[in-house]
Design a protein around this nucleic acid. Structure first.
Lengths: 333, 333
DNA sequence: AGGGGGAGCTGACACGTGTAACTTGCTCGT
DNA sequence: ACGAGCAAGTTACACGTGTCAGCTCCCCCT
């Protein structure tokens, strides 16, 4: 028995095996510029490293550099859907291409103060869906976080990179309905308070378009995800002459459809309805649901360049929004 | 201008302000056992730490301890739905209660070798939905990862903690249909290869129950998420006398419903159908979809205790499965 | 009276890495 | 012939923390 406890392979081990100094190993493996290493030595080091299965210690590297290559995303405390899921996936891929590592922390700032989080990881940047207090931002800056991006919310200090796209979603919904000739618009608001940060900018977008196109509305009503509970809202819209409704998302839109069915109403004849997200169920619904999709890959690419620019001290590029959000026309509107 | 570059607050700063040694600061802030610190000193240290806003460097701590308190979860490369989302959220909360920090890395092992991942973070444990190769596991162990848990997959070396629950899902679906009197069962398999790791154990569960209850089936057919494309599968089942179908999940189940509608068939009279997940659209469908839910909180609790036990060197407790998976009966079966 | 021992604290080292500063040959221009 | 200059490395320090060993009192027991 040589050694009961397994030991980490360090760069010193690699150095010893390759017959060079530890510094040389570091220079070789990091491709440090302005350092001249002979091809022979370089080869020996690389061979030694691979044969030992050497992986540098993230902790030591982060300690020395003062900066890790981790980008942390704080998720909101409601269960994320496939859309946010793909966004995160794309963002991860995009950042990986530049050597960054993307991780997400799910939910519940409540039960764990987020302070502990950038204490536990030392991220190069932090993205968050929710608001940050100025004090929190200062604390994170002091801890060495290069960039803090708020995606949505009330505060202005961190840029709200997702605010405008979300507004565009609402505008596009309303545009579509108004262009189809509707003059009284409704808005189906979600029953879950936790998604307010998404719902508010979308509603605001619809509101702006209604004002700009000079139609009445939007008449906002909360629509629970239940056929029976959705019925009163649908009846109220119908009674007050609303002929088309923007829904917060496809689930809410399908609740509106379910409520209509109970009342014997048909879409789009009696009431047109447009959702958001294009979930699989949307195209399977009766009638097939007209909806709005977001090009998550493009959004991810923009967020990635924003993060990378901030980390490298370059100016943050302006958002390129055209074409990111699009209507998928089916039958319901 | 005192200092252009902001400096980290270290424990040395706290020590200086409190008028004690750095070791004392460490002892106080970590509540180190078998160390006696006077109440007065303890107070001074804590005051100094809070007034300076001291947050220990995760990197340095991880370097020294050789172990971070981060639990890393490698997500599969398909967009995760709300169910997995809640599972992750619950797991995060559960682990946070014990001082662990949970983070998830979305998708695409392809574009980034996972090696880089536990190189970038130094997790105490790694959970993964996908398979690990033995070589990868060895490498991670060598890098100081205490526990490697494979949730699903073919390999046997890491425990597949989610395998059995997923099988139970399939069994429960089939049980429900058989108990309702059906004797020819079909299985609606997803069109997306990426979800195979979930689909296989569910199908296996259905298969086991069919064998045990001595009914013919399951007759497996791939059902795309499109009404027209789903039609042939439905017709084939109907022609061969299948009267009930287990679907991989609610989306696939709704595709089956859509296919039936095109053929003028009605559920459950002509063909009973049962889904999985209880997504919001399930209760809004016509007919309302019977489905199977998983108690994600219970699963998360079990995973959390498993992880904590392994980290602390305690034996891993057996899975407590009873009641974790349940049928939600509606109209479609 | 004397020393054993515990309370309360400090000094010093190790963790593994990146990198600035320094050394040693060797070539090459004049 | 002789230093300038460059290729090819090495030595040494710093990053911030946890913790072991040790140090100084002072109390208390016999």
């Amino acid at each position: 028995m040589t050694d009961s406890t397994i030991r980490r392979v360090t760069s010193a081990d690699v150095a010893k095996l390759a017959g060079v100094s530890r510094a040389t190993v570091s220079y070789v493996l990091n491709d440090t510029p302005h350092q001249t290493i002979s091809a022979a030595t370089r080869g020996r080091v690389i061979d030694a490293a691979t044969s030992l299965g050497y992986a540098p210690s993230a902790a030591a590297r982060a300690l020395r550099t003062g900066r890790s290559d981790v980008v942390l995303c704080l998720l909101p405390d409601w269960p994320i859907g496939p859309e946010v899921g793909t966004l995160l996936g794309n963002l991860s891929t995009e950042l990986a291409r530049s050597g960054m590592t993307f991780v997400a922390h799910p939910g519940s700032q409540a039960d764990r103060p987020i302070a502990d989080l950038w204490k536990a990881i030392t991220p190069a940047a932090v993205l968050a869906f929710t608001d940050f207090s100025p004090a929190e931002i200062d604390a994170m800056r002091a801890a060495g976080v290069a960039l803090v991006v708020g995606l949505l919310g009330r505060s202005t200090s961190p840029r709200r990179e997702l605010e405008v796209p979300q507004q565009r979603v609402g505008r596009l919904q309303a545009e579509h309905l108004v262009t189809a000739g509707h003059t009284r618009i409704g808005y189906a608001y979600p029953d879950d308070d936790r998604v307010r940060i998404f719902a508010e900018p979308r509603l605001e977008g619809a509101r702006l378009t209604c004002a700009a196109r000079d139609v009445t509305g939007p008449a906002v009503r909360v629509v629970p995800l239940d056929a029976e509970a959705a019925e009163p809202a649908v009846r109220a819209w119908h009674d007050e002459g609303v002929t088309a409704v923007c829904a917060y998302n496809d689930d809410v839109a399908m609740a509106v459809l379910a409520g209509m069915r109970r009342l014997g109403l048909h879409a789009p004849a009696d009431l047109a309805i447009i959702g958001v997200d294009d979930i699989p169920a949307a195209r399977l619904a009766v009638p097939a649901l007209t909806t709005v999709t977001t090009d998550q890959a493009a959004v991810a690419a923009h967020l990635a360049t924003t993060v990378l620019a901030a980390i490298n001290g370059r100016p943050i590029p302006p958002s390129e929004l055209s074409g990111i959000v699009q209507v998928v026309q089916r039958e319901s509107a």
